[in-house]
């Protein structure tokens, strides 16, 4: 730091110090908050994962038992189920969100805000209430089945509740706005005369989309996918409320380890950390890939 500013004269150095102090004071509350309520709890989770479980609590004895179990593949199934669902949710959200985001971004300035409000309105209702309304809608004698039977499309009620289909439907419903908003913000910034230019150069609408619009919205696709994939991976509420107890998702497994007696705090901690590790590796991998592409650019 000092070396960096070695060329500054005395008064400039004072100025610099003042600026540094200012930025420290301004960021301190957030720093403290994150330290006490994020960093410290995470350290506790890390420590817990290396301890030994007791029936209700833990014993302070070092153990690698939890990790041994995880890496021997005991929990491979919930991990795979969660990843598959998170992946499908992300893809579906992307396919559904892109046209919506595109449509909003290309509509008139006034209508844009109205449409965005419509996207945000669901957030005004509590998530649990929204999931319960899906339960009523999808139930065996629920609204959907009633309607389908009324029109004679089916003869017996469909079993949708408590299936992976129900989980998928609700997941897409809940996470769709998280995909639409970043996509919108990127697509909105695309200069649409570029599409004119592409068509002028011989590209029809489809080619112009795949060669110009899509590549230019990659950052939005990436941001939206992260915003959907990560929460979908750890989802607990949705899987618990509309899911099937026979196919447990990783979020449910972690909860049961703490909720059910005998409790296994170390296992829950180790599972959480493993999930975190996998997500981190994926993100770093994606970032490196992006960096690699960018380097090729310059």
């Amino acid at each position: 730091m000092n070396k960096q500013h070695g060329y500054l004269n005395l008064s400039e150095q004072k100025q610099q110090k003042k600026l540094n102090l200012q930025s420290w004071i301004l960021t301190a509350p957030a720093m403290l908050w994150l330290t006490f309520f994020f960093l410290v709890p995470y350290l506790i989770v890390i420590i817990y994962s290396f301890l030994t479980p007791d029936i209700y609590d833990i014993r302070f004895e070092f153990s690698l038992e939890s990790y041994r179990q995880i890496f021997s593949g005991t929990y491979l199934r919930p991990f795979l189920i969660s990843f598959r669902m998170a992946f499908l949710t992300t893809i579906l959200c992307l396919l559904l969100a892109y046209p919506v985001a595109y449509f909003i971004a290309r509509s008139k300035e006034k209508t844009r805000n109205t449409l965005l409000v419509f996207i945000i309105i669901p957030f005004w209702t509590n998530l649990i209430i929204r999931i319960f309304s899906w339960r009523i809608f999808l139930a065996t004698n629920g609204v959907l089945n009633d309607i389908l039977m009324q029109f004679g499309l089916i003869s017996a009620p469909l079993q949708i509740m408590r299936t992976d289909l129900a989980v998928g439907l609700v997941m897409v419903y809940v996470y769709l706005p998280y995909m639409i908003l970043p996509l919108y913000s990127v697509i909105e910034k695309i200069d649409f005369t570029l599409l004119n230019a592409a068509m002028d150069l011989g590209a029809n609408e489809v080619k112009a989309f795949f060669r110009v619009t899509l590549p230019l919205s990659v950052t939005g696709i990436f941001a939206g996918s992260i915003l959907v994939f990560i929460p979908a991976l750890g989802a607990y509420l949705i899987t618990q409320l509309v899911g099937n107890q026979k196919s447990l998702y990783i979020g449910q497994v972690i909860t049961y380890k703490i909720k059910n007696i005998p409790r296994n705090w170390p296992m829950a901690s180790a599972l959480s950390l493993t999930l975190l590790l996998i997500v981190t590796l994926l993100l770093v991998g994606a970032y490196l890939l992006w960096l690699h592409n960018k380097k090729r650019k310059f």
Binding site: D191, T193, L194, N196, A197, A198, M199, D200, L201, G202, A203, N204, V212, P215, L216, K297
Partner: peptide, 22 residues
Amino acid sequence: LPPYQRQVNTIFQNYSLFPHMT
């Protein structure tokens, strides 16, 4: 005819070069 079927090309006012391409 749509623009992509005409043997006509345009220089746009703000050039409209594709920013993601060399």
